[in-house]
Design a protein around this nucleic acid. Structure first.
Lengths: 173, 173
DNA sequence: GTCTATACCAGGATAGAC
DNA sequence: GTCTATCCTGGTATAGAC
């Protein structure tokens, strides 16, 4: 990736995340990135291509995080690490996740394959701990993660006190 | 509201919710609603006015739900009713809530005034029950509600098993 | 790799007739 | 209250020069 290509990539991510993909024009991306509009299309074919480039790059990284949790053998630790996920989002990753959460509502959730692995490994953990309904528990954890992530990404306050409350509910600590 | 005005209102809500506001053109709304495009502007001034009309109508109804919870005196019942919220969304209301959740990510959450009342009444409930950090608990409940609502609205499965799991965490039954 | 110029179309919005 | 016709802007995308 050349310098200017990176510029396009980064400003597009920023603008897509804050204003939404549809509300972000290629001309604005070019202007903010300090680049000619034509260059966007040279490098990324079209606006959709630019979006896809951003998504695949970010999802690869994200995939690693999820993997790190699934390899955890102790069920309690696995659940705890999952619940800690939204509290460990790095500031550099905010834009990406805001984009992902926005897109959920229009294009359907991005990538379902690795997410179902993640859910399965959570259900397995709850099963080991003899919870009554492991798969429901797994779905609940996912929902809680989503809910807290939303709070973190939108309110921009790092809500450490919340973590204590959640872990408490699961008698982890 | 005349018949056609209602048509515009309803199809706009539907399209806004599924495709997003920006991706929904006034011409498409007109076409689907079986109405001339000009009529939209006669009735709602502009696209933004149409959106606002939809939002204020829906938020008034929503406000009532929240009020119903806040008047509940027993703290346990109040918390339980709050947590039940996402499970009681009516199918007719799906589009509205999908729209609201979408807009969160671009325009900032719609109306913060009545929501902070709601949060305060939750914190108060936790306070009465001698929880360690009532305000954090209140925020957590809100996050859980948001997370589950997302699950309900996007996956379109009514996840009753989840309810049992959540109530369990709060020792409500 | 990058820029300028430009084609082309679609979107929001208005005017005026019925 | 409703429709048709139309204007104008701005958005996506391409061509060709440097």
């Amino acid at each position: 990736m050349t310098k200017k290509q990176q510029n396009i990539f980064n400003t597009a991510l920023e603008l897509f995340a804050t204003d939404g993909v549809d509300a972000t024009s290629t001309s604005k991306i070019a202007k903010v990135a300090g680049v000619s509009e034509g260059l966007i299309f040279r490098h990324f074919t079209n606006k959709e291509g630019l979006l896809q480039a951003i998504l695949t790059e970010g999802l690869n990284k994200a995939h690693e995080y999820f993997q790190l949790i699934q390899v955890e053998i102790d069920p309690k630790t696995r659940i705890r690490k999952a619940l800690e996920l939204p509290f460990n989002i790095l500031p550099e990753e905010y834009n990406f996740w805001r984009l992902v959460y926005t897109l959920k509502w229009q294009r359907g959730s991005v990538q379902t394959e690795e997410m179902s692995d993640f859910r399965a490994s959570l259900a397995d953990a709850f099963d080991q701990l003899n919870y009554e309904n492991p798969s429901a528990e797994a779905r609940l954890v996912e929902s809680i993660i989503d809910g807290i992530a939303t709070e973190v990404l939108l309110k921009d306050v790092h809500p450490k006190p919340l973590l204590k409350c959640v872990l408490d509910k699961y008698k982890l600590k």
